[in-house]
């Protein structure tokens, strides 16, 4: 017969009793972020010059995905207090009380260790070390330090989100190639205008939670200017894979058209500053930026996984 104890959530957790469902632990992994990580990592794996056995490739991607999930779980453990204050995040498992902080922490730590060890064994030590660095950077440098202390939080913290292609490339080759660093640069420079577009609309919520996002600290005008400046850099950087010769002309077309669309959005965000129209345009920038990044990496994935198409495009 099983026994449990009355008391608060921590007491229940210590006694080994919980009402958390598997789907709550799945939510701790931030599945949507995880899918983006897998997608960008797949591109990093496919642009590698050497052949990787499909089983090793799948195992590596799985380890990178779980590592990203571990980062998400550790983030939700640490940020439960501010997550509870924002409508977008208050239904997450920890602030909603479905998973205790102790469970989230243990889950994140176990997955972090398992994923890095697995990648180190399955691929190579460099890839495992890079994955460990990515998790630590996201959990400690971004979540525990930058997020609550500076409006540059997502600029520097964006490095964690930009590293998966580098990790995957290292898993395939055992090195950090310039091609993977270009993919890193694309995601790194894409991150600020993407998140600041959302922050312009949600600045009240971030302010209530005490998170110093750019619009709350420097004001909307400065944020709009920085979105425009970052996008001006992003558009040519997005075309680098084509310009440097490791992506086809078809990728170049996607990058140029996508970059132009991003610039048009950023210019609108800069120009229209008042009323509902301003919010609508900022949200359009947010969604267009998601589509832009997806299109760039989809082009890389398609042309590298479908050699016959590549031959036609080149």
């Amino acid at each position: 017969m099983s026994f449990a104890t009355d008391g608060d959530a921590i007491a229940r957790s210590q006694a080994g009793y919980s009402t958390a469902e598997p789907r709550d632990f799945l939510a701790l992994l931030k599945p949507r972020v995880m899918s983006l990580v897998v997608f960008t990592a797949l591109a990093g794996l496919l642009i590698a010059p050497n052949h990787v056995h499909p089983v090793v490739a799948v195992a590596s991607l799985l380890a990178i995905a779980v590592g990203a999930g571990a980062s998400g779980a550790l983030n939700m453990w640490y940020d439960a207090d501010i997550d509870a204050l924002m409508t977008r995040t208050k239904t997450r498992p920890v602030p909603a009380g479905r998973v205790t902080p102790t469970e989230a922490l243990a889950f994140g730590l176990i997955l972090a260790v398992m994923s890095t060890l697995t990648l180190g064994v399955v691929a190579n030590l460099l890839a495992g070390a890079l994955l460990a660095f990515t998790i630590l950077f996201y959990a400690i440098v971004y979540t525990m330090w930058l997020k609550r202390s500076t409006p540059q939080n997502i600029v520097i913290g964006g490095a964690a989100g930009a590293l998966p292609p580098v990790v995957a490339y290292a898993a395939a080759t055992g090195t950090i190639g310039v091609e993977s660093l270009v993919l890193f640069a694309i995601i790194f420079i894409w991150t600020p205008p993407h998140f600041w577009a959302l922050a312009l609309v949600k600045s009240d919520e971030y302010g209530r939670a005490g998170v110093p996002m750019m619009p709350n600290v420097k004001g909307p005008a400065r944020t709009r200017l920085e979105i425009l400046l970052y996008t001006l850099v992003l558009a040519p950087v997005g075309a680098l894979p084509w310009l440097m010769g490791f992506a086809s002309a078809a990728y170049g077309v996607v990058a140029v058209v996508g970059g132009a669309a991003m610039l048009a959005c950023a210019a609108s965000v800069y120009r229209v500053r008042e009323g509902d129209a301003a919010n609508r345009i900022a949200m359009r920038m947010f969604f267009v930026s998601i589509f832009y990044l997806f299109a760039l990496f989809a082009a890389l994935v398609v042309e590298n996984s479908l050699p016959p198409l590549l031959a036609i495009w080149k």
Partner: peptide
Amino acid sequence: SFVPRALTEQEL
């Protein structure tokens, strides 16, 4: 001072 009890249906 925990008082043992049977698990609820939901906990099980």
